[in-house]
Design a protein around this nucleic acid. Structure first.
Lengths: 333, 333
DNA sequence: TTGAAAGCGGTACCAC
DNA sequence: GTGGTACCGCTTTCAA
């Protein structure tokens, strides 16, 4: 295990020429004679010279790196988005660094503040749950003030003036609920473990609106991921339900699991529409009807928007909406 | 949207003191009077001064950042490991940047080479599939030569002399197969979509050894993720099988799906042992018996090893083995 | 065609 | 207690 990379200075000494000559030669400047270029390049290769990125970053005040900040990596949606971002950025001169907040406000602020100070050129962010509950957004303002553009997706902050890519959460759940009503369901419950998230609220609102429009009373079951199964079990004991909208993966799995445990016939006695990855949905039994959010597309859009913004800081702020689709599978007819 | 962060120099001008005074004051040097410190700190806070990380990195020749390179983020195992790494690193002064190779050799070399040049202080890597097939490892050697320690996990390279954390792939599949033999299974097939991976080979070898030890003939079904279902279907048509060992998630899901399609009674007519995330395994029906790899622990071990190595470059190379456990669920008695 | 030197944004040694 | 300056590794302008 040897020392750090060889530097220009060391090469210069070895070759008895100046540092600037080396630099120019390696960058194929016309100022340098072909002979010297050749001589220098050979020695550089011998020593496996690689320019120090950090020095370049400092020199040019940019790093060609963008930061992707997501609350969790265990979440199929966020990993889909990440792949979409990757897909676009890989074709650009930029690199990605991914950070995970674990839904923590403190981690999020720390990450954003650290990376703002010269480490990255811009951000793609889905806001942590804790940040959405505390409603403290100073770190985003500071990044923007610092000339680091931000693109928010899915979990966005209304009051922050930046590019955004969002899902039609309200509409998609509204439509799904209407679909259930139209197929004759009389008692539709909503199950959620994400009441604190903006997306959870929008989805719940969409559900409520559809029910109220049809003169039904909303029945909203909210609880933590740990206790949601028990809560669903209680629901079945106390109410007679013929359909469930589960607005996150945990809720969806809990609803299906408990329904099966109680030997309910699906979808005959109970219809379920939920959220889950394609892989999960297709391997459950019965296969789960889902509201599919096109994470890959969302990621692509975020990346494109950020690249645009990095090119042109002054174009107007844009908010893009990506529509979800209802993927009908066995739990729903 | 204003300019970049304010610099020490600009602060110095505003306050009519020297740059060094500002720097010392903000770093609470005893050389500076309390009055001046106060004055400077107030103005610094007003202007939201944050030291430029890149300048510090260049100055000190280290970045307090470590790179985690994984082949895929869609893979439950790698995300488990990532959480484990996060868990340890979060308590250290280091930051993590995550990069995804998508199993591509080219991406992997690009990532490692780019980050080696001053961007990170060390690596935690699971080698890409393509790298394992091409058997080109120069980028790792170059990182090590560059004084950037590397910890490999799961997908490791024998010939590279670095710290490693591996799973007992051979033994765990050997034991699982023996378990099946001991419970009276006569015709045990192995299904795989990862014949090119070192871990796939080890698992398959473990299976073969157990069968041969018991004087059975191995029956190995290998194919791509896209076509594995068809291959399994053919298997059922041509052979009479009473147990399957599926050594990756795709294979496991395919085996279960096709078995159900053919109305085989599980585990009565067909026993299945596979690989899958806990969440997936518990929500399949019947629930899947899995070989569980303790990804979180593996991640923690990797992180601890790298931190140790960064502290002490000269301690002997270490290879740690994390044993898997067989999580018995409904597909196996 | 080559080299000297300034500068990117900090820190720290050494004078004063 | 405060300020000047060299240095980290590189690029680039300007002079030779």
């Amino acid at each position: 295990m040897s020392r750090n990379n060889i530097t220009l200075k060391e090469l210069a000494k070895k070759l008895s020429v100046s540092v600037s000559t080396i630099s120019k030669a390696l960058n194929d400047s016309h100022e340098i004679s072909d002979a010297t270029k050749k001589r220098i390049k050979i020695v550089a290769k011998q020593h496996n010279y690689q320019p120090n990125k950090i020095a370049l970053n400092l020199k040019f005040g940019k790093t060609n790196t963008i930061s992707v900040v997501i609350p969790s990596i265990q979440n199929y949606f966020f990993s889909q988005v990440l792949i979409g971002i990757e897909n676009v950025i890989a074709k650009s001169p930029y690199n990605i660094i991914v950070s995970i907040t674990s839904e923590s406000f403190k981690k999020e602020t720390q990450i954003v503040k650290t990376l703002s100070n010269g480490v990255v050129d811009g951000f793609i962010i889905a806001v942590a749950e804790e940040t959405q509950t505390t409603q403290k957004f100073h770190h985003f303002e500071s990044a923007l003030a610092n000339n680091k553009p931000v693109v928010m997706f899915d979990r966005v902050v209304k009051s922050i003036d930046c590019d955004k890519v969002v899902v039609d959460d309200f509409e998609s759940v509204f439509n799904a609920t209407k679909h259930l009503i139209n197929t004759g369901k009389k008692s539709i419950a909503l199950v959620s473990t994400i009441p604190n998230l903006s997306v959870g609220k929008s989805r719940t609102n969409g559900y409520s609106k559809a029910l109220i429009d049809a003169s039904f009373t909303p029945l909203i079951i909210e609880n933590s991921k740990n206790t949601i199964k028990d809560t669903v079990e209680k629901l079945f004991l106390t109410k007679s339900i013929d359909a469930i909208i589960a607005i996150d993966e945990e809720s969806s799995l809990a609803a299906l699991k408990i329904a099966k445990k109680r030997n309910l016939q699906i979808p005959k006695q109970l219809t379920i529409i939920g959220y889950a990855s394609k892989k999960m949905a297709e391997n459950l039994c019965p296969e789960l009807t889902t509201i599919y959010q096109h994470g890959f597309l969302i990621g692509q859009s975020c990346a494109k928007m950020l690249l645009e913004r990095l090119k042109n800081k002054h174009k107007p702020i844009h908010k893009k909406i990506i529509n979800s689709t209802l993927n009908i599978r066995e739990t729903c007819l």
